[in-house]
Amino acid sequence: MSLADDRALSLNFILTKRFEMADSIEQLKQLATQRLSHLQSLIRPDLGSHKRIKLQRAGCGNSGSLLHDDVSAQHAKLLFDDYKNLFSEKANDQLRFITILHSVTSPTLESVIDAASRMEREINRAVGQAGVACLGATEIEVVNLKLLEKIKSLSDNEARKLNVLQNISDCSDVDPDCGVMIHFHGIVVSNSSLRNKELRSALTNVEDWARSPYQIELKNLFRNKTITQNLEKIASYVTKGGNENLRYNAGFGRDLPEDTDARIWRAGTGRADEGGETLTDERALTLHEIALLDRIWIALMSRRPDMRGYLIES
């Protein structure tokens, strides 16, 4: 048993004893809330659990955040429309897909909002300095450094992600197991090599973005797709909600829609209703992390009346 498990059991024991010794209804309510929160921080959904069920179990089944597939799809369509209005007359080679990995901070609402606001100010300043148009979205992702350390030998992608996250983490502020990565995806108009150079220079001069390789990426759009196809794909990608399937992402980018292990589970091997044993999904966010991620998204979205407060436009 790990030290973290020992601590979790000890805390549960303490809460149980306090619950037994409570001498008022109000005290019982407070302790019950604490105990529920503690249990949620330990519980991970079973392998193959549907996203909708995970959200319901975490208490945010009707929250309206980007974690819900129908909400994400609506926001992707809105952003796609914005992209078409701004960029549809441009050629593929005039646009760049930009990614900025800002920081990993502690998993609290206040810390994440503060870090996101700082990133947004720096993006507006750098893009304005370079004199280019930009439209994209702040994105947040719950990351588990302990899990990445465990699986880093599986591929270069996992090892690279772990290295970057460690470099951009505030070591005095971030839990060794869990943190929240604040980053940005968007499209910029970069229709000349000079503009491209000026933009990259403005971005790399930001101190927060000079801590690790891969923090800043400017990529060409796919040449084998039309401008409309590229814009639609990007709009969907940047509104996916970070932990798209409410699991820790092993590497950078989008995980496969269906992992092999989840497909096996749904086929009956691990389903209780099919006579199999259920298995805890080691890569699933805990119910507490799902609820936190949902609250953060609602806070970001609510910064604009149309619930699109995560957008950055320069």
Rank of each mutant, 00 (worst) to 15 (best):
A235P: 11
H183W: 13
S172V: 07
F222Y: 07
S302R: 14
R254N: 06
M181V: 09
A210I: 07
L246A: 07
H288N: 13
I264A: 00
N205F: 09
L311G: 04
D175N: 15
N205Y: 08
E217W: 02
G186W: 02
S193F: 04
G270Q: 12
M301E: 11
N205L: 09
Q166I: 02
W265R: 08
I168T: 00
L279V: 15
D273A: 11
E277L: 11
N243H: 07
T269C: 06
T239C: 01
Y248P: 03
W265H: 10
I187R: 03
K197I: 09
D255A: 15
Q166D: 08
K225M: 09
T280I: 15
L194N: 13
L279P: 00
T204I: 10
G268N: 09
Q229C: 06
L246Q: 04
A291L: 06
Y248E: 10
Y214T: 11
T228R: 02
F222E: 05
N191S: 15
G275T: 06
N191D: 15
D273F: 11
V180M: 13
L256N: 14
L165P: 01
L246V: 01
V164L: 01
K219G: 02
T228F: 11
I290Q: 01
P257M: 04
G270Y: 14
I187H: 02
D255E: 13
E258A: 08
H185K: 11
G268C: 09
V188L: 11
D255P: 10
L293P: 00
S169N: 07
N205R: 14
L300F: 03
C171V: 13
R247D: 07
S236W: 08
C171A: 15
A272G: 04
Q166C: 03
R303S: 13
R247H: 10
T278G: 02
T239A: 00
W297C: 00
E289M: 08
